[in-house]
């Protein structure tokens, strides 16, 4: 098993088949952040076709206890079946650990457009979280900077709940991780 550090080129006996399958799997949406796909979130790590023509898919969950993983696995199986691979195997790898740095610029724009503040760029190495003092995201609705954290543990494991001081609206914020 390889340990990819970012989106990787497909490998396997036939790179084009793997690339086509990857395109099909890249349409699977995250069940909790529906505006993003598992590809955009960085959950989909590797797609291979084995020598005997079976799909071998590697994923990295966002959190150890992410309750969406069973749904994501089922959705991947369904997408692989629809793409002509009824016998897909799905491996879970924790290394390298998932990080919000894998969410690209286009995906961050999609989050913002959906009213969800994207995670801030990577913190400097060695930086530690201080109690109730995280980096303040801008309001995704009106763009204002005066925002307040309401609770660090929001509607899903990966989100915190914030409120804008200018427009007064509450909003979700994907936590830096």
């Amino acid at each position: 098993m390889t340990a990819p550090t970012g989106p990787t080129a497909p490998t396997g006996t036939d790179g084009r088949d793997a690339a086509r399958l990857r395109e099909a799997l890249a349409t699977v949406h995250d069940p909790e952040i529906r505006v993003l796909t598992i590809e955009e979130l960085g959950i989909l790590r590797q797609v291979d076709i084995t020598p005997d023509g079976r799909a071998h898919i590697t994923i990295t969950p966002t959190y150890l206890g992410c309750p969406a993983m069973d749904t994501i696995r089922a959705d991947i199986r369904a997408a692989a079946r629809a793409a002509g691979y009824p016998q897909a195997t799905i491996d879970t790898t924790w290394s390298p650990p998932w990080t919000t740095r894998w969410i690209g610029a286009a995906a961050r724009d999609k989050l913002r457009a959906a009213g969800i503040a994207p995670p801030a760029p990577a913190p400097p190495p060695g930086a530690r979280l201080l109690p109730l003092a995280a980096t303040a995201p801008r309001c995704p609705l009106c763009g204002a900077a005066d925002t307040t954290e309401l609770t660090r543990f929001g509607s899903t494991a990966c989100k915190a709940l914030w409120r804008c001081g200018t427009c007064g609206e509450p909003f979700d914020h994907v936590k830096e991780h």
């Binding site: 959190y63 150890l64 206890g65 309750p67 609770t151 660090r152 543990f153 929001g154 509607s155 494991a157």
Partner: peptide, 9 residues
């Protein structure tokens, strides 16, 4: 919600 999230982790 916070405690349930921590339990889940």
């Amino acid at each position: 919600v916070a405690l349930a999230n921590i339990c889940l982790d």
